[in-house]
């Protein structure tokens, strides 16, 4: 069997498959169907300082090639999360990423301080890109300096484990955002959250979603995200969890070739947990069919070939 292990963020992952934050919630329901030890890492749904009810329905609208979701960060708040949710996620037996979002620096500082004292997870993800909440006091997805100041504040209070920053694909210029976060201490990046999307009812003239817009997730976005990962790789050498449009084992290889260190899967886990679980197995077969004994060997070989061919 091909060796899929990856070393990033100073940690070893069993394979490069990362379940992205949100579509599969906090994990216990997914763990009923999926052997979580077969996944490289699981990211918990984003939590905020206070409990949030989330948006009124409809929260979902289908688009054929994908779906627009407007959940509005429904979550129990950081304290209940740490007390009730995190202990059960710790038992998944895979790398665990905790995701947080805030409405002001103080929110981030408080949550980071609390998480610093808590065991049972490996990486902290800062969701600076949720498209689905009413505007808060800060808008880090529009202001690179604001994004940087959040990272710096979190790093002041949270030093025990790596911090990855999840950006919006619409946070432009992308290189300025990445540099601002990196110089503020980001250990890596989760690129990207979903694009904004909307759909309208041609019979009533009204938007389908109660909040009009939401996060559009679709395998059709893959080439756009691939290109942006390539661009990001030119700007940073920190780990990148490439997220957006991946759905197959072949996609993992393609994202890695574009510059990803690990690959995030959102939609797939939500609509087909079995397919998610099989990704590492298919990846092994993909590599073996091409005559490689490890993912590492494949990456080194293809990068060398690509450089020679240029």
């Amino acid at each position: 069997m091909a060796d899929l292990r990856v070393r990033e963020f100073g940690l070893e992952f069993a394979n490069p498959v990362v379940v992205s934050s949100g579509p599969t919630g906090f994990g216990p329901i997914l763990a009923e169907t999926v052997d979580m030890r077969r996944i490289g890492a699981f990211t918990c749904k984003t939590v905020t300082r206070k409990k949030r009810e989330g948006n009124p329905p409809p929260r979902l609208v289908d688009c054929g090639y994908g779906i627009i979701a407007s959940i509005g960060l429904q979550n129990p708040g950081i304290e209940e999360f740490v007390r009730e949710t995190l202990p059960s996620a710790d038992a998944f037996g895979t790398r665990l990423i905790v995701s947080i979002a805030g409405f002001c620096l103080e929110d981030f500082a408080q949550m980071a301080s609390l998480l610093e004292t808590v065991h049972g997870f490996d990486i902290l993800e800062l969701n600076l890109s949720c498209p689905n909440v009413e505007s808060g006091l800060m808008n880090p997805s529009e202001d690179p300096r604001c994004a940087g100041s959040i990272v710096a504040e979190v790093k002041k209070h949270f030093a025990s484990r790596p911090v990855t920053v999840k950006l919006s694909p619409e946070s432009l210029p992308q290189d300025t955002f990445i540099r601002s976060c990196e110089s503020s201490g980001a250990d890596g990046f989760t690129l990207f959250n979903a694009y904004h999307g909307a759909r309208f009812d041609i019979n009533t003239g009204r938007p389908f979603l109660r909040r009009t817009e939401g996060a559009y997730s679709s395998p059709a976005l893959k080439p756009i995200v691939l290109k942006k990962i390539r661009d990001a790789r030119h700007v940073t050498d920190r780990p990148i969890i490439a997220t957006g449009g991946a759905s197959t084992a072949e996609d993992i290889l393609e994202f890695i070739l574009a510059g990803a260190s690990l690959v995030g899967f959102g939609l797939v886990g939500m609509i087909d947990p079995e397919a998610l679980e099989e990704l590492p197995l298919h990846l092994e077969r993909c590599l073996e069919a091409r005559g490689f004994v490890s993912l590492d060997e494949y990456c080194r070989y293809l990068r060398r070939t690509a450089e020679h061919g240029r």
Binding site: P23, P57, R59, A69
Partner: peptide, 23 residues
């Protein structure tokens, strides 16, 4: 009736609020 995506309670896409405020 509700739009659904996961169908199992993971994605939080199909909420219904009860009169006591619980979602």
């Amino acid at each position: 009736e509700s739009r659904m995506a996961c169908g199992t309670g993971m994605c939080l896409g199909c909420p219904a609020k009860m009169k006591d405020g619980t979602i």
